[in-house]
Design a protein around this nucleic acid. Structure first.
Length: 338
DNA sequence: AACGCTTACAACCGCTTCGCT
DNA sequence: TAGCGAAGCGGTTGTAAGCGT
């Protein structure tokens, strides 16, 4: 991390582009600008938003941190497994891996891989090397990736595929404020517990700020039923085949919200449409917008913009997995030598 | 409490790709 | 087709925070 520079001028007093950490004020400026005006050319975004940042820096900040559809918090064991599996197929194509993990950025996955998974698997491979004299030890050069993902050491088996409430790291102060201020609503009689960017609805369903919903009892979360983490609850991870869906199947389910003001009490009616695969996918765009300094008459317009943006971002990233699957051998499986 | 080491991750850098003229 | 600017991508760096001594 880098220290924020406290002014935008260099030694000569000339205007200079800022570098380093983003301040909450900068985040707010960028967030407000994009919500109101859309993305467009990033150079223009930087200039028009009043930021002394280069467009590239603004783009990165938006993509990796400010985007409202980001899923923050620790990676779940299911996500870990999926990342490993995808990495075995794709190598360091982080953007393509990220395209299969809605709400996760390539940068986040890359960091997670380099700091955690790589190390963990390396330790595991060293320990298995020590025990490779065992008659059952497999030849690392001839192992079958399709089987091997069931034997990834160091990972929590996901036979119990209950989706846990997503823990949170430390979101930007400005975003934290945005979420905290907006999540204390009652939704159709469900009491909600706010935990950073994640909400727990009473009766054991969880959904985070971008709206992925997980039902603690039925385990019918967006990911599970769409097969991202497996074909069924008891068939994931150890003993089950990892199923990687085509990106097209990761569809958004629009949530309709209406706000009624009743003496400072804002009730939110949520209709959650169930679409293909019975996936439940909340999107409370209003919650995102309510605290971006957006006036009421612009809110509806912005809602449509954000919805379009989210839809675009979920559908972009068509990639050639099927093509790659034809030649899996061209990708090193769990190769940590680079 | 102070120090040094490790970890996690935000952000930058440089290269490639894409789209427009 | 060449040239240019913007966007996208992966590798790398730097540092706050955590941890052990």
């Amino acid at each position: 991390m880098r220290k924020p520079e406290h002014n935008g001028k260099n030694n000569n007093g000339m205007n200079k582009l800022r570098k380093g950490l983003w301040s909450p004020e900068e985040d707010d400026k960028l967030m407000n600008y994009i919500v109101n005006n859309g993305q467009g050319c990033w150079t223009d975004v930087a200039r028009n938003a009043g930021l002394q940042r280069c467009g590239k820096s603004c783009r990165l900040r938006w993509i990796n941190y400010l985007r409202p559809d980001l899923r923050r918090g620790a990676f779940s064991p299911q996500e870990e497994e999926l990342i490993i599996h995808l990495h075995s197929l794709l190598g360091n194509r982080w953007s393509q891996i990220a395209a299969r993990l809605p709400g996760r950025t390539d940068n986040e996955i890359k960091n997670f891989w380099n700091s955690t998974i790589k190390k963990r698997l390396k330790n595991k491979s060293m320990s298995t090397t020590k025990t490779s004299a065992s008659p059952n030890a497999s030849d690392s050069k001839s192992h079958d990736p399709k089987k091997d993902h069931n034997n990834m050491g160091g990972f929590i088996p996901t036979q119990h595929a209950r989706i846990m409430p997503m823990s949170t790291s430390s979101p930007s102060p400005s975003i934290q404020t945005t979420i905290d201020n907006t999540m204390m609503n009652n939704i159709e009689g469900f009491s909600m517990h706010v935990d950073g960017l994640n909400m727990q609805i009473a009766r054991g369903s969880y959904f985070n700020a971008i709206g992925q919903c997980f039902d603690e009892y039925n385990c019918k979360g967006f990911y599970l039923e769409n097969g991202v983490f497996g074909s069924s609850v008891n068939n994931i991870g150890v003993g089950g085949d990892m199923f990687v869906p085509p990106l097209e199947s990761v569809s958004t389910t629009t949530i309709t919200t209406t706000n009624n003001n009743h003496s400072n009490h804002e009730s939110v009616e949520i209709k959650c449409k169930r679409e293909t695969n019975n996936s439940t996918y909340f999107e409370d765009i209003n919650n995102i917008l309510n605290n971006c300094g957006v006036s009421n008459n612009k809110r509806a317009e912005n809602k449509i913009r954000v919805e379009n943006m989210l839809q675009e971002e979920l559908t972009i990233g068509e990639w050639e997995l099927e093509e790659l699957m034809k030649d899996v051998s061209s990708f090193p499986f769990l190769d940590f030598s680079y």
